[in-house]
Design a binder for these strands. Structure first.
Length: 826
RNA sequence: GCCGGGGUGGUGGAACUGGCAGACACGAUGGACUCAAAAUCCAUUGCGCUCACGCGCGUGCGGGUUCGAAUCCCGCCCCCGGCACCA
């Protein structure tokens, strides 16, 4: 029986370990994937960008998934005739290198480069179509020279500045963190509870770009909805008004921000954040400092956002009063942790009738509640209220605005405040400036010299890079490694030549990764971070692929950098990544892979055992690219042969046998299926539906195998299958293309197959005959029959007639040749 | 609580604008080959009733629109992700 399929003398069995390493070398020798340097190259350009890896060890499953998807896209674009830029590099600075060095005694640099080489070797083994000539590492002085250069441009424009402020301090990593790196009050890296410290630190003025970051998000062509939502939430724009109250006892003006100026007449008290600079002075004046002081001191010791305290409704009266500018009322002032110094102005007007937090505070402290927005259900007794009232209603107890309905009340009150000079429309953002300095060793040094006479002085461009000392003592404790180095920081002031010291902080690694995609366009460029013409030629990126964990941090920062570079006239666009794709996570048995759970599956041993092609296909076929993959469910034990490996084996024999059979003189069913498959796989690839595309290739494989006896069309089907397979299984397809089909050049530089639309439809189709919408019969009909013929066939159907029974057919819906629905009278 | 995404067989998932639900796989069961196993090949596989032809039910739940709904509308439930005293 098997002889039907096999020609024992000819058939070669599929053996990944025999074919894969061979092609790695051939492709590299042939320089297959190098992007053109020629500005006049007529081909369309496509920049396929993958989020560059952090070299923490060998590649893990997450890398496999992400880079497999990115590689399919790059290879597909090559075959479609594009000039493709598909680079690779390493995000090589960062804490883990330093921590590993502390633990094992190796230098951060050695640890980092060893890991990079291991990952590079694994990428090669995977057959990734990278342009290795453009490779970069952010920890190379050649690279961080330009990170520093960019910092100085930001510094010149006032976008990099130093200030003292309360900051997030990770006691474990011994460094400050950006707001974005604090998750639920804990360090994003190590999970330690973050402490609050008052320190002088460097910031990027990203808040200047808040509105543009928000507005331009709407112009992005194709980003996952959840990522856009996260960015919008993070930026956190709210519209409202600023209103200035006056402290009755001192006459000083205190401005507050509110989104509900229409509730100004309902203010019954006023609250300061614990950290507000006026608190101590006002408490001393009001004679309440002894009561207030414990709150203030506790806040200094706990984390920046003390959630527990904020959640409580504790608070202390200050003994002073605020005067409401809209009605001259005098209300008591409090200090309470539920008001945050970080948002708005650090002081609020309290309207207990219409704000739940104010309501709870009022009840706790026996303060009056005054309803100023009457709900549609009628008057409300403030004493009977159990929660704050919703927003809808009509203004009452509000002087000139009584009777004003809620949809227009905010705008009217705001306009009135401006006209009266008592307040103004205002917008508030949740976004804070980006704290970029770190008290650690393994990062790009901040290129600033502190001079007792000249202040903060930029290191001149021609003295960049400010290199890291190789002999640092980077162990934890005490001062940071650069600060404690005996000689490194001592330097002459570039301005006056006097004795000065370098800034001893390094930059957050997110600074490095905010511009690496520009550098890929001009590797080795000596006169700037990139050559503007190269960036204009390649960018914006055609497709950006990477993990959703960067939804806020990396993607927001990169967008910010791009806008600044745009304002500097260095890039012609404002968004670097119009199209973003997030791969799903690879989990195991319902849980994230982790050392502590002991459920980590190492990919490279599986690649050695079953092949890189099987590894890629297993992931890409498992489901939509953006969905999580549970490795236990789709692959099970490492010894279990992957289903896709068996399929590749069948492809291997099918293409061999098909080649033997030659082509039919007339296009037959197999040829038609081949054309249809080209159409469908092309469409699926354009929409990144890899799992569906692969299933279509499986169908074609099955069809080739089951029709081999019938002859005809097999050769073109086998050849086309080989090409369509190329983006997904680069090794297997190459082996078939060159060794079995005898083509001279690589399948990966072959032209993507086209299809003849007249051959993508069948001669006959299955027509469905329904009665009242239920399927009652199916009939094979000619694909080109008209409505009348379709109806005749439906009427002739015995099954349909039986289903109609003795009822009258009142209406016939005909969608020839697909469907006829006989509708009976009711 | 607010925002975003989702809920389809035993499992992963298909079903382009409303038109044959379950493609393609995995798993399972039976069979062929084998001393045996692996590999390979063949068959069956949504649930229920039926010897069978068939019939009924079926895309989280309840309604609605339509000749016809996984798909559109209304109201719920549940799961995942993000944000959260943000004034």
């Amino acid at each position: 029986m098997c002889l039907r399929y096999h020609h024992p003398a000819m058939a070669r069995r599929y053996d990944a370990s025999e074919i894969e390493p061979k092609w790695v070398k051939v492709w590299e020798d042939e320089g297959l994937y190098q992007a053109s340097e020629d500005p006049d190259d007529p081909r369309p350009r496509f920049y396929a960008l993958d989020m560059f890896p952090y070299p923490s060890g060998d590649l893990h499953m997450g890398h496999m998934e992400a880079f497999s998807g990115g590689d399919v896209i790059a290879r597909y674009r090559w075959m479609r005739g594009d000039d493709v830029l598909h680079p690779i590099g390493w995000d090589a600075f960062g804490l883990p290198a330093e921590n590993a060095a502390i633990k094992r005694g190796a230098r951060p640099m050695e640890w980092t480069y060893a890991n990079i080489e291991q990952q590079a070797a694994s990428f090669r083994r995977m057959g990734m179509s990278f342009d290795w000539t453009r490779r970069l590492n952010t920890c190379d002085p050649e690279y961080y020279r330009w990170t520093q250069w960019l910092f100085l441009r930001f510094f010149e424009r006032g976008l990099a500045y130093r200030k003292e402020s309360p900051v997030n301090w990770c006691p474990n990593d011994q460094t400050v963190l950006a707001n974005e790196q604090v998750i639920q009050g804990a360090c994003e890296r190590c999970g330690s509870i973050v402490e609050r410290r008052d320190l002088t630190q460097w910031f990027f003025r990203i808040t200047d770009y808040a509105q543009r970051l928000l507005d331009d998000a709407d112009t992005l062509e194709d980003w996952p909805e959840r990522v856009l939502t996260m960015q919008r939430n993070w930026i956190g724009r709210s519209e409202g008004a600023e209103v200035t109250f006056t402290v009755d006892e001192t006459g000083e003006e205190i401005t507050i921000f509110t989104t509900r100026p229409d509730t100004l007449w309902g203010v019954t008290f006023f609250v300061f954040a614990v950290e507000h600079p006026a608190v101590q002075r006002l408490a001393e004046l009001g004679g309440t400092w002894d009561d207030v002081r414990p709150l203030v001191e506790r806040a200094r010791q706990t984390s920046l956002v003390d959630r527990e305290a904020a959640a409580s409704k504790e608070g202390v009266a200050l003994g002073v009063h605020a005067v409401n500018p809209v009605n001259g009322e005098r209300v008591p002032c409090f200090v309470a942790p539920y008001v945050l110094m970080e948002y708005g102005t650090g002081a609020i007007m309290a309207v207990p009738a219409h704000d739940q937090r104010d309501f709870e505070f009022a009840r706790e402290h026996g303060l009056p509640v005054r309803v100023v927005i009457e709900p549609p259900t009628g008057p409300v007794d403030p004493d009977a209220m159990t929660e704050a009232l919703p927003h809808d209603g009509v203004m009452v107890n509000s002087g000139p605005f009584d009777g004003e309905p809620s949809p227009t009340s905010i705008a009217k009150v705001t306009a009135w405040l401006e006209a009266e000079g008592r307040g103004r429309a205002a917008v508030n953002f949740r976004l804070r400036d980006w704290l970029l300095s770190r008290q650690r060793y393994w990062g790009a040094p901040i290129p600033i010299v502190h001079c007792p006479r000249c202040g903060e002085v930029a290191v001149p461009d021609d003295q960049l890079p400010v290199e890291l000392p190789k002999d640092a003592d980077f162990r934890l404790g005490g001062e940071s490694p650069l600060a404690r180095h005996p000689t490194w920081k001592h330097v002459a002031c570039p301005s006056c030549g006097g004795e000065a010291v370098r800034d001893t902080d390094t930059m957050d690694t997110f600074v490095d990764s905010s511009w690496y995609f520009f550098r890929y366009c001009s590797p080795g460029f000596e006169d700037g971070p990139f050559r503007p013409e190269d960036v204009a030629r390649w960018m914006p990126v055609g497709q950006y692929t990477g993990g959703v964990e960067h939804a806020i941090l990396h993607l927001l920062y990169s967008r910010f950098f791009t806008k600044v570079l745009h304002d500097m006239g260095m890039v012609p666009f404002v968004e670097p990544f119009p199209k973003l794709m997030n791969q799903g996570q690879v989990i195991y048995d319902g849980a994230a892979m982790s050392k502590s759970k002991g459920n980590i599956v190492e990919p490279m041993p599986l690649v050695e055992r079953w092949g890189a092609d099987s590894m890629r296909l297993t992931m890409l076929f498992a489901g939509p690219f953006e969905d999580d993959i549970d490795w236990k469910l789709i692959a099970g034990e490492p010894d279990r042969r992957p289903g896709v490996h068996a399929w590749l084996g069948r492809v291997f024999t099918a293409v061999q046998d098909a080649g033997e059979r030659g082509d039919a003189p007339e296009p037959d069913a197999l040829v038609r299926l081949t054309h249809k498959t080209v159409r469908d796989v092309t469409d699926d690839l354009d929409r990144y539906r890899f799992n569906v595309a692969i299933s279509k290739l499986m169908v074609l494989t099955n069809e080739i195998r089951s029709t081999l006896d019938a002859g005809g069309g097999a050769a073109v089907a086998g050849r086309t299958l080989t090409q369509l397979l190329a983006p997904f299984a680069p090794f297997t397809s190459e082996e078939l293309w060159r060794e079995v089909l005898g083509e001279g050049a690589s399948v990966h530089t072959s032209t993507w197959p086209t299809f003849d639309p007249s051959l993508t439809t069948e001669n006959t189709v299955t027509m469905v005959i329904q009665v009242d919408g239920k399927v009652r019969d199916k009939v094979e009909v000619a694909a080109d029959i008209d409505e009348a013929a379709a109806l005749d066939i439906a009427r002739a159907s015995e099954r349909a007639t039986a289903a109609v029974g003795d009822r009258r057919v009142a209406k016939e819906i005909v969608r020839a040749p697909k469907l006829v629905n006989l509708v009976t009278a009711r």
